[in-house]
Design a protein around this nucleic acid. Structure first.
Lengths: 331, 331
DNA sequence: CTGTTAGCGCGTTCAT
DNA sequence: ATGAACGCGCTAACAG
């Protein structure tokens, strides 16, 4: 049994295809009687308007492309959910691209998205160069970037205020009496890492603590890096009394290393993470961290994209928040 | 500057649209010279075939719909990644539907998917009734279900062998000398919960331990349930010496409750989870659990779907594996 | 209020 | 080897 199309319904209801379209899409200027007749015929044939024909004429897919680097990175699921729920409220569906940190896949996805399967794109991936994004935007594809501050008349962005996040973490440690504060940072090519670093230095300067480059390193943002770097730091002649990490995963690595070394947290060493992923409240002890409003980032990105489709461009910065748990204490 | 279409390229290259199509899609029966001319013209105009027109004629979207309940449930990201990577290998893109456990959203997504935006659907969501899935399959939509054993000539499935998982966990505890083994199970309406329960009882029977219904409960599968249920269990007159939970999240809840009560794991109480999510190796102590091959489930589902599109139907069961860490010990 | 016509952008005949 | 004509399924514009 073949799927019924608009013509089949038209024939059965004894009207023309356009009348069927009008009836089913709730347009005015049609008698209630024929509308009912059409609806009945449609139901009888189990008719569903074909998406492929529909998007060709209406020029809208009601889809949004969402590009992320890695869904198994616990930062993303909440972001995706925020985006998905908001999109769904407005009748849109999310088309998810997981790029596995591969710049080639990112490019492929973007080219695919630019060929028409979506009405707009949200990018929360770090490798793709701004120029490429700008090119596509100038070709007419609505684009919103997440956690990247990109000032361009055709592009909107929403980002956590990373600098403020770095500042908050460092200031918290300083106020607890720490002065030797290590920063196990993320990749040096990342804008987020750079901005958090700025905040770190700003807090140091504000409290007149001399910046010491030996306490700062740039790393792949995984737990293992936190582990390795902690062991190195704690074996220097003048080890830090506090460690601030680029993300929570790396803080877990720190905590694991410390446990191996028989050092106690927070008594011997204070630790502050970044992101506040779900599991951070379950560690032992629970992790003090800087919360990114992840769900809000996804939600806001969708809203900005919808606005951008109506030519309203905007850039917004979201506030991070320090979540004080039990990995930090007075020196 | 408007986006170029096939006609623009044809005009610039001085040929007809059909020749452009042939040239760009690598068809034979065209002179190398004109092919080059077309390719050049296309490049000059930055031509990309329009997806919306393309799918209408080719009748293939190269998209796969993937329906899951909640991306923030740590079980799903790895599954999604497995699916995404495999799909991408075959030139397909994943269209993700996150249903937030809402049956209405599941239905909406499925109806949407059945209208043509995808070539097939993978369902890893528990609320939707089998009948609805069967209806869509019989209308011609290729469907693969995950973790649901659905025998139907038009539907393929891939599932972890849940019964074996429940059996493995229980047997492990029995062999450590435990006889009062509680099972904090998931929702009673879930097929997965039911099958794990079967395995639990099978192990008990095999070792001639009397089944005690007071030690079994059905719960919403979140950490909080594990917490609450543990407190209840430990306050009974004859408390269990071991607890098996429906998933790792619930095991975390158990561990938290136990810590609050001043009881030690594994010395006073053994705990086994289910899933082996990423964080389970980071808990204190690291969690003993039953591993589901999550990435493999996603990968296999895509492969099955591709086969199903060629009319090859199949059902496959994947082996769970017990991961023994430090929350279980001899009684 | 309703039907006819045209066109979205492509791939695919069928001629030549 | 190439071009003309057609159709995928739908909605929008125009007539009546």
């Amino acid at each position: 049994m073949k799927r019924a199309n608009i013509q089949d319904v038209a024939k059965l209801a004894g009207v023309s295809p356009s009348t069927v379209s009008r009836a089913l899409n709730g347009f005015p200027g049609i008698s209630e009687r024929t509308r009912q007749r059409v609806i009945e015929a449609a139901k009888k044939l189990n008719y569903k308007p074909n998406y492929r024909g529909q998007i060709l004429t209406t020029r809208s897919t009601k889809n949004i492309g969402l590009l992320i680097t890695d869904i198994t990175n616990p930062f993303f699921p909440e972001l995706v959910r925020g985006a998905e729920e908001t999109a769904s409220e407005y009748g849109y569906t999310i088309l998810l691209g997981n790029t596995s940190e591969s710049i080639e896949k990112e490019t492929n996805y973007l080219d695919f998205f630019s060929r028409g399967p979506v009405d707009g794109v949200i990018i929360s991936a770090s490798r793709i160069p701004n120029e490429h994004i700008i090119n596509l935007a100038e070709e007419g594809l609505p684009i919103v970037v997440i956690n990247r501050i990109l000032e361009h008349p055709k592009i909107s962005y929403v980002s956590t205020d990373m600098e403020k996040g770095g500042y908050l973490a460092t200031k918290h440690l300083i106020e607890l009496g720490h002065t030797r504060i290590a920063f196990i940072n993320g990749p040096s090519h990342s804008e987020a890492a750079e901005r958090r670093f700025l905040g770190y230095k700003k807090a140091l300067a504000e409290f007149k603590i001399r910046y010491n480059s030996n306490l700062v390193s740039f790393n792949v943002p995984v737990a293992e890096s936190g582990h390795k770097e902690t062991i190195r730091l704690l074996h220097t002649k003048n080890p830090p009394t506090a460690i601030f990490t680029y993300n929570d995963l790396m803080a877990f690595g720190v905590m694991k290393a410390v446990k191996d070394l028989g050092i106690r947290i927070p008594d011997d060493l204070s630790v502050v993470g970044f992101d506040d992923i779900f599991f951070s409240s379950f560690t032992d002890p629970p992790l003090t961290t800087i919360r990114q409003p992840k769900e809000e980032l996804g939600k806001k990105a969708v809203e900005l994209l919808l606005k951008l489709m109506k030519e309203e461009r905007q850039g917004v910065l979201l506030e991070p928040e320090i979540i004080i748990r039990n990995t930090t204490t007075r020196r």
